[in-house]
Design a protein around this nucleic acid. Structure first.
Length: 428
RNA sequence: GGAGGAGUACUCAAGCGGUUUACGAGGACGGUUUCGAAAACCGUUGUCGCCUUAGGCGACUCGUGAGUUCGAAUCUCACCUCCUCCGCCA
């Protein structure tokens, strides 16, 4: 949700933001509705004020004295007047509610405009690589893909998962299961040291919460598992569960930035990705992820975004995996994001980089919807800024398998993870 | 699943149809005082809007939403959340 005051004052900027994100919304129509809505609101307030005033008249003649009024026939006159006021009130209120519904509906569809430094582009083909790190591995043998390794080492089982659950699921077994736990523990330890608060959040959240995070509009619900009977949604990332934690709350200025690490399973329907990445577990309906989430003051959010990116890089560097950083163009940003960076890891089997991390700043967009504020020293309250970023998911493990594979078919474990796994190698 | 009880501002907490402008206490912030601090005292401490120079004024706000009434924190209904007891349970 954007600030209507800001839209009134900067309509061109908002129009440009919508265009850059390739979302069609008639801002002029919105402003027209806003104007009428405001007039109606004033009329409604005035009508209510009249009613309240008339009521005060009656209040002057409480209990016993009201009988006196009655005798004089004055009560009937006042009450008749009240009925008139009531009618007027109801009429304006009904009119206002209708217009307000229209207004809120339109407001809910306007995306957060891209940050000024984000380049315009239509889709992911126009994203820019801004950094490369690490040396690509060289093999003196034909490297296997993660799913070939998974099968030969008996650590990933998609066949049986197909039998039990369907496509895009997998069993992680043996060394793979331990490696995943090791990576989660490593990330949690690393980020705890940075002051992040570890959280295992609910993975089912209310539709309201999901709406507050801005992921239900513009077809977003297509990618979610919605539990109709219970009005719940399975989260696609723990961000969706952590953001609404502080709904309707006001932080003290000294408590910001507030940083969390969410550890959760994530669920995605992957609608519209038929035929893509069908082998192995690169793209699955269910995976575990460690996620960073920050609440900051507005003036700190850009700095925080760079900080989250730097932490993601440090994590990848600790695993010694070659990666590149990609800055997303405007057309590839979601509804709430103002700026987004991806980290893509090198996958030898595909001979290209694939996304493992993503960090976004949503500025005050989500905070406005969820009503999350903070109080400045002078007592004024403002909306916080909210940011998120991946620490680790299952994809980096696949990258470990492929980048650390040996000629004999075994896989070495990155040094930093060895104390967590308790072994240095996965072998048959 | 059954039976009860409760949700009031940042926190605790009174009020249970009309002198409520939501009592009171604590916390936080600002001020007076002080060499400085404590204490004391005086303010401020929800959201939206209108007119403005200071500063006024209005609407909304007692879990949420409807309803009864001239008038609702207070009465009625529905829903949400929490607590206690019973049952079931990792």
């Amino acid at each position: 949700m954007l600030d209507i005051k800001f839209i009134r004052e900067n309509p061109e900027l908002i129009k440009e933001g919508c265009r850059k994100k390739q979302i069609k919304i008639d801002i002029d129509q919105l402003l027209e509705i806003d104007k009428k809505r405001k007039e109606l609101m004033l009329a409604l307030e005035d009508a209510r004020a009249q009613k309240n005033k008339a009521n005060e008249e009656i209040n002057k003649f409480v209990s016993g004295e009201i009988k006196q009024l009655h005798e004089k026939g004055k009560k009937e006159v006042i009450i008749l007047k009240m009925r008139e006021l009531d009618k007027n009130n109801d009429r304006i209120e009904a009119e206002f509610k209708e217009l307000d519904g229209e207004f809120q509906g339109l407001m809910g569809l306007i995306p957060n405009p891209p940050a000024p430094d984000v380049e315009e582009g239509k889709d992911d083909t126009e994203n820019k690589v801004i950094k490369k790190w690490g040396k690509l591995p060289e093999f003196d043998f034909e490297p296997k893909s993660h799913f070939e390794l998974g099968e030969s080492l008996d650590i990933i089982d998609t066949k049986r998962a197909g039998k039990v659950s369907g496509s895009r699921f997998g069993y992680l077994k043996n060394g793979m299961a331990k490696l995943e736990l090791a990576m989660i523990n490593f990330a949690v330890d690393f980020l705890s040291e940075q002051g992040f608060i570890p959280v295992i959040p609910p993975v089912m959240i209310s539709l309201d919460s999901m709406k507050g995070m801005g992921y239900l509009e513009h077809g977003g619900e297509e990618n979610m598992y919605i539990l109709d009977k219970d009005n719940l949604v399975l989260v696609g990332t723990s961000e969706q569960s952590i953001g609404p934690m502080h709904k309707d709350e006001t932080f003290e200025e000294k408590d910001l930035p507030k940083r969390y690490i969410g550890i959760s399973t994530c669920f995605r329907r992957e609608a519209g990705s038929y035929g893509k990445d069908t082998k192995g577990i690169l793209r699955v309906h269910q995976f575990n992820k460690v996620e960073m989430f920050s609440f900051t003051k507005p003036e700190d959010s850009d700095k925080e975004h760079e900080y989250l990116l730097s932490l993601e890089e440090k994590l990848m560097q600790a695993l010694e995996l070659p990666y590149q950083v990609v800055k997303m163009c405007s057309g590839d940003l979601g509804m709430p994001a103002a700026r987004k960076y991806d980290i893509e890891v090198w996958l030898p089997s595909e001979n290209r980089y694939r996304e493992t991390h993503s960090t976004s700043t949503c500025t005050d967009f989500q905070a406005r919807r969820l009503n999350i504020r903070f109080k400045r020293k002078d007592g004024k309250s403002e909306f916080v800024h909210m940011l998120n970023g991946t620490a680790f998911s299952e994809r980096p493990i696949l990258a470990i398998l492929e980048n650390y594979q040996q000629k004999d078919g075994s896989v070495l474990i990155p040094k930093v993870l060895q104390k967590y796994t308790g072994f240095e190698k996965i072998e048959k």
